[in-house]
Computed example of a mutant assay.
Amino acid sequence: MYPNLTGLGIHDPKQIERYSLRQEAHKDVLKIYFHKQKGELFAKSVKFKYPRQVKNVRVNSSSGNYKEVTEINRNLTLVIDELNKLTKPVEVAEVDVKQKILTDLRHLEKVVSSKIAEIEADLEKLK
């Protein structure tokens, strides 16, 4: 039913809660978040990187100049279509940028704290 997600190795697409998409240099980064399982501190997520497609577009027909532009990978658009069917994203009005940055920062703090605790626990096992 979701061949593109299955192709990514996601065997139970119904477990997908949400996704995010961002651009890094010449790649689009898709991060898929799954519903949190009982006993997990954070929900599991997987990350996929797609190279952007490069095209040469004529800037001015009289001069014959071309400009290199990039666009989203076709496979990624197919995956996003399937993700939209699963997650039914709500149209978001303009997000308060400051609030989003603060939310991202708090999340990063939790992730780093959790990882530090995990590493410290591993160190204690070595004693």
Rank of each mutant, 00 (worst) to 15 (best):
V112P: 00
S61R: 15
E120Q: 15
S20K: 09
G7Q: 07
L86S: 04
E17V: 00
L8R: 01
K55R: 15
P51D: 13
P13I: 03
Q99V: 09
Y66M: 15
E82R: 04
L83E: 09
I101F: 10
T6K: 12
T77G: 07
V46C: 13
I116F: 09
L108D: 09
V59P: 01
N56H: 15
V92N: 05
L76Q: 09
D96R: 09
L83P: 08
K31M: 05
P3F: 05
K27W: 00
N65R: 11
S45D: 12
A117I: 01
V46W: 07
K115H: 13
R22C: 10
D122W: 04
L126E: 07
F42D: 12
E82I: 06
A93M: 03
K100N: 05
R52A: 03
E118C: 03
V97P: 01
K55D: 14
P13D: 06
V97Q: 12
R18L: 01
L102K: 09
L102N: 10
L83Q: 08
S63C: 02
K100I: 00
E118H: 13
P51N: 13
N75D: 15
S61Y: 14
T87F: 06
L21H: 04
A121E: 04
N75K: 15
A43G: 13
K88L: 12
V59W: 06
V90W: 01
K98D: 06
K100W: 07
E82W: 03
D12W: 03
K85G: 07
N4D: 07
V69K: 14
P13W: 05
L30W: 01
L86N: 02
L30Y: 02
S113E: 11
L105M: 08
L123P: 02
G7T: 01
E40K: 07
A25R: 13
K125F: 02
Y2A: 06
L86F: 06
N73H: 15
I16F: 04
K31Y: 00
R52L: 14
E71Y: 06
D96T: 06
H11P: 00
E24K: 05
T103L: 10
I32Y: 07
F34W: 04
R18C: 06
I32S: 06
R74N: 11
S63M: 10
K88E: 11
N75C: 03
N65L: 10
H107E: 11
K27H: 08
